[in-house]
């Protein structure tokens, strides 16, 4: 038994013609066409291109909705194990079409997809959404691109785990994967420094991220009538950590009532955080979560009310995505409880 593949190419690679034929609408052909031959050869019988969809680049760009509907219908009928588009090299509209149609197939038909193109192709902007094999900037690179795409496609069809981008040859997609290098880190560092000093090219192993921004909410108008809630990433929990929140890489957050609690006393509360010296927080947990002061301000009428529940997470080694998910969940609870302002403390 061999895997079934549907392949998408443009008018040029189907030998219909160049720019002058870019207007042709989608067409379904049986078997492999053009670059598909090279893919099929690499699979050596393990997978077969059952059909090839050809579409003019201008047609796709100008009639995207119709083209997409037609192509999705054909792909659905063919029930392939993978949908492959391109490679598009540095052809802009072709790359755009490959990336977009591949994304539709992946999201709407739930079929694995793969495409390939040059890193500066506009279609490569979608590298975080679909797997894109990095190719050279001209069709002369087909000899290298086809085996790379064929190998990765076969892994996907076979349900194998995909290795890191640098090993498999796809563009970095924001998903970090571990692997063992041939040289140790210090040697790689010295080598990178020598390149940097000599003005030679080097590739960072981790491109610096950029963080998004949120517009600030309006201020609390009347503090003396406001309900203020306390949250912390410092891991304050009741004694013996009843929810067993992990010291690092926490898999959950804590939600604890402080109704009637005047101050977080030693012994009754402690920290579950593994990233800092816990002695001080355990000695007096108000040092991390200032319940004592807020209760006093509540009595004095400086704030309307201290909300009777606090939320606690361990920031230490816990991924941003996980932290975000926890906070999203409890932020909604706070909103539903008509909390007017939040004090978040971090260690």
């Amino acid at each position: 038994m061999s895997y079934r593949v549907v392949h998408y190419i443009n008018q040029f690679f189907a030998n219909i013609g160049g720019e002058d034929m870019a207007h042709v609408p989608p067409e379904l052909r049986e078997g492999a066409v053009g670059p598909g031959m090279a893919l099929q050869q690499a699979w050596n019988g393990g997978a077969e291109i059952v059909s090839t969809i050809v579409c003019g680049d201008s047609y796709f760009a100008e009639h995207e909705r119709e083209a997409r509907e037609q192509i999705l219908a054909w792909v659905k009928d063919a029930k392939p194990d993978i949908f492959i588009a391109g490679p598009a090299f540095n052809a802009g509209r072709y790359g755009y079409a490959c990336a977009n149609i591949a994304l539709s197939v992946q999201d709407e038909l739930n079929i694995p997809v793969l495409t390939g193109m040059y890193e500066e192709n506009p279609g490569a902007d979608m590298r975080d959404k679909i797997l894109i094999v990095s190719t050279s900037n001209s069709a002369a690179g087909m000899r290298k691109a086809a085996p790379a795409m064929a190998a990765l496609a076969f892994k996907l069809m076979n349900g194998e785990e995909i290795g890191p981008s640098v090993v498999e040859g796809y563009m970095p997609n924001g998903i970090r994967k571990n692997f063992f290098e041939k040289e140790r880190g210090a040697k790689r560092a010295v080598r990178m420094l020598i390149s940097k000093l000599n003005g030679k090219p080097f590739v960072t192993e981790f491109p610096m991220p950029s963080f998004d921004r949120v517009t600030p909410n309006p201020a609390v108008k009347d503090m003396s009538r406001a309900t203020i809630a306390l949250c912390t990433s410092g891991g304050i929990v009741p004694r013996d950590n009843p929810d067993r929140i992990e010291a690092s890489s926490a898999s959950r957050y804590g939600e604890y009532s402080i109704a009637g609690v005047d101050s977080l006393t030693k012994g009754a509360y402690e920290t579950a955080h593994g990233g800092y010296d816990p002695v001080y927080a355990n000695e007096n947990p108000n040092r991390v979560l200032p319940v004592d002061v807020l209760r006093e301000l509540e009595r004095e009428g400086r704030i309307g009310k201290l909300y009777d529940v606090f939320y606690s997470t361990v920031g230490n080694g816990t991924s941003v995505a996980a932290s975000r998910a926890y906070a999203e969940e409890y932020a909604k609870k706070l909103k539903d409880a008509n909390v007017d302002g939040v004090i978040m403390t971090s260690t």
Partner: peptide, 20 residues
Amino acid sequence: GNDGRSQSLADSDPLADAVI
């Protein structure tokens, strides 16, 4: 994160352009 999808570092700066 377990799935490798989260932010790797707590702080960042574009001047840190050579990272091992």
